[in-house]
Nucleic acid binder design. Structure first.
Lengths: 245, 245
DNA sequence: CGAAGGGTTGATCTCTGTCAAGTCTAGTGG
DNA sequence: CCACTAGACTTGACAGAGATCAACCCTTCG
């Protein structure tokens, strides 16, 4: 083992933290070759955050980007009088930050226990200029988030409270297990958000969220194991509830 | 005048349609050098569309992208039972289409009289692979639309009907004249959307939009010259109305 | 002139927000 | 081990913002 970089870089030469990292494959780091990853890894550091910790301030300059390693991050907008709206949720290999602009117009908060892998703005900005593949990945991320945002807009503008809650539960369900077979098998999952966050995500109040959850429970569409654990006996029934006039 | 291409290409050698085109500077074509533009221009054609014409279908494969040259395009999502939500408005030099995916999950419709400059998918896709600058432009477009989508999400989820309508009018006002001085001067503008579209944009009904417009009129915040023409005597007053509990 | 499309206004209903009380659980300290 | 507290969640009673239903006006166009 020498500490001078070698020409032929094997997988074992990847930074330790990167080896088992999801962002390494599906996230933006998937665009990087081992030596580029090594370069970036020199400047990264992992951080853990408890629920409701601020991760990215709105308005002020932000000096770093991050990958979401574990947990769920909520992107929130708020109004002067305290009303607030969650405009996006970021899951595991998602990229956190607004490229090409120092200021964010929403702020990021940990929804549950979150682990980030952060790196300085300028390091990534420089790499983006050099490696078109990296920009392509970021572009794909932006488009994915745009698609999600527009789905949520339909939910916010046109769905009833009941449909909103069903839509949210469905989103979390398929996110937890995207591979799941669609032959009506049951699934159980943890809610990464508490009721207040769900309300801010769906443009409702806590009380209405609670009421619609019990309504879905009484209709047999979900089973509430405990406040944060939901069991869906029949996914199709839940899907129907997302758009049932 | 020869019709063989020359080596040194002056501005006058640009495709005629491109010379006065806004997309040439602020739009995605701004990333292209004259010869690249010439290549693209070989495959473009301009089309005019009357209000409520479908420009881009949802679900089916789409074979072309476009730049919006004139008019306003609405991106709409609709539910099985007919409820619909406008998830985005595209103005003059905006790019229309979903890169890297054949299918759109929303469809595009002309809001007023629209002129497009369209080109085949594969021509642009090939150029994107060759010219990183072009992808950068598209990326910026996507991020801009994401910012706009998130602004609208706050409006949809948390604002009152009155604030929603004020927010919409304000958006159109500053869009029509982004240079306007903020010293309370009055501005007049045309609404590119009819009431039904405004309702679909804001997640309201036609009736509520109408009521809130007259409410704003009676409050002296706007003057309705005719159905489609609005005069704002004091822009700050309108801004206040966008977030007045 | 009549019809159609776009817009306004009124009366009424209903969904969701507001206010308030109460339950459940986890955590703390005696 | 138990009492106490705080936070998250639920449930109920009530009110209000916006939807619905319906009538009507205005302009345009054949």
């Amino acid at each position: 083992m020498s500490d001078t970089p070698r020409r032929d870089i094997h997988n074992s030469d990847l930074p330790i933290a990167c080896r088992a990292c999801e962002a390494r494959h599906k996230g933006i780091c998937g665009a990087l070759k081992p030596d580029q990853l090594l370069h970036l890894a020199k400047h990264t550091n992992r951080t853990n955050h408890t629920p409701d910790t601020e991760l990215l301030a709105s308005g002020e300059d932000s000096h770093h980007y991050s990958n979401v390693i574990k947990g769920v991050v909520k992107l929130t907008k708020l109004m002067a009088d305290g009303r607030q709206q969650i405009v996006g949720l970021q899951f595991s290999p998602d990229f956190l930050g607004r490229p090409f602009r120092k200021q964010n117009d929403s702020y990021a908060e940990a929804a549950n226990t979150v682990q980030l892998c952060s790196f300085p703005r300028n390091v990534l900005d420089d790499m983006v200029k050099q490696f078109p593949d990296l920009e392509h990945r970021l572009h794909e991320q932006a488009l994915k988030q745009l698609d999600e945002a527009r789905d949520l807009m339909l939910t916010l503008g046109r769905k009833t409270a009941n449909e909103k809650v069903a839509t949210f539960l469905h989103m979390i369900a398929i996110h937890n297990d995207p591979e799941l077979e669609h032959d009506s098998q049951q699934i159980e999952f943890e809610l990464p958000l508490k009721r207040a966050d769900i309300a801010d995500f769906l443009g409702l109040t806590i009380e209405t969220v609670s009421r619609q959850m019990t309504k879905l429970r009484k209709a047999g569409i979900i089973d509430i194991r405990n406040n944060r654990t939901i069991l869906v006996p029949d996914l199709e029934a839940l899907e129907d509830a997302c758009e049932s006039l």
